[in-house]
Design a protein around this nucleic acid. Structure first.
Length: 134
RNA sequence: GCAGUUGGACGGCUUGUCGCUGCCCCAUUAGGGGGAGAGGAAAGUCCGGGCAACAAAGGGCAUCCCACUUGUUAACGGCAAGCAAUCCGCGAGGGUUGAGCAGUGGAGAAGAAAAUAACCGCCCCUUUUUCGGAAGGUGGUAAGGGUGAGAAGGUGAGGUAAGAGCUCACCAGUCGUGUGGUGACACACGAGCUGUCUGCCUUGGGAGUUGUAAGGUCAUGUAAACCGGCGUUUGAGGGUAGCCCGCCCAAGCCGGAGGGUAGACCGCUGGAGCCACAUCGGUGACGGGUGGCGUAGAUAAAUGACAAGCACCUCUUUCGGGAGGCACAGAACCCGGCUUAUAGGCCGACUGCUUUC
């Protein structure tokens, strides 16, 4: 798996129901960088894949119309795709995987530039904390 | 030219960088290449079907839905063309309503009275009397009054004590006959003498339930739950859409394979398919014919992000330009409709006003 390049395949997403349950009901840690709330959890050691996997959620109560929800999801996804190299080095050092959930909080649309900067801050913080855990 | 009515089609384009989901090709792998990839409403989930599962011998009642006519269709509560009444508009046009000459019930307030109409009024006769008249009594009268959605068909004339479809003319309604129309109805002639709204009811037509998270296959695999076969007593009990009639089931034995959880695959896109035609039939919805096309299939859910340029719109201008904007909205089994949202411009037909010839 080429995790170094700026791609984002299905293997890099959290899509199994059990994984989602583990992330939210398990001991996932969280913090907020408005308008984002980030929940993350180091993946279990039984998972041979050391890459990061993500999940993006935009609740219906933020945007009633699906077109706006899609817009936000795509902004977050692109921001992560272009900036995930911030995380990969620390993951390689610790040889661990991580599951991350990005949850949108605002009821307004933001510019892509703004979303990208927030995602960068979030990724840097996760990388920092992962290193501290080691 | 301006204002408007109505129908139809559209609802951005190009390039670059980095990506996503199927498909095809190359490659041992890693990967590389090619091509495809949201809408007119994809929305609301309001109707109608296809498809699937479950249930079901059949009949009656009840319940629910539909309701001018004819057509159209797989079907519809849709659509098309018409009919009648009524309302809006100068007009092109648009809105609303629409089974029933059977039976039976109801109608607040207002008003004398809401269907066996006499409160006021009008008139005849009569009694008393202060002999102008007034008061009382027996009757007649639906022309006038005000109330109301509706007042005993309307207007006018004759008639009368006063009046009345009492009679006549015209008009509206009802019924009968004839003519035209597939029909709703229209027209002509004749007869009789005629309230409005609404409930039950009646008539005709129709309706099983649940929705692709349906449902199926695979792997894992322990029960009393399921299926098939054999077999059986009693009609108690259960099932059969709410009730009735009617029908069906069962204890036991043998065999098969199952429930729940998470996962993969099928369902899953070739279909009432789309496009074209100075084609044929039809006023039209629509139907036929000929030719062509291969046209999204995701599964926590792809169809994108960013940048530049061009269109288009608004504002501004020192006429070079500058600033801002660019709708509603995102497939989830598939179709036919309806409803709602929608920046902007485009095309056709028609109406009114105005200008020029």
């Amino acid at each position: 798996m080429n995790t170094g390049s700026a791609t984002l395949r299905k293997a890099e997403r959290v899509y199994k129901r059990s994984d989602v349950k583990r992330l939210f009901e398990g001991n996932g840690k969280s913090f907020s960088i408005f308008p984002l709330r980030v929940v993350y959890m180091p993946a279990g050691s039984e998972n041979e894949d050391s890459s990061a996997r993500i999940l993006i959620s935009v609740p219906k109560r933020c945007f009633k119309r699906a077109a706006k929800r899609n817009r936000v999801k795509r902004q977050i996804r692109e921001s992560y795709r272009l900036n995930k190299h911030l995380l990969s080095q620390s993951l390689k050092d610790s040889s661990k995987g991580v599951m991350i959930a990005f949850i949108w909080l605002d009821k307004e649309l933001h510019t892509s530039e703004e979303v990208a900067s927030k995602v960068k801050i979030a990724l840097n913080r996760i990388a920092e904390k992962m290193n501290n855990c080691q």
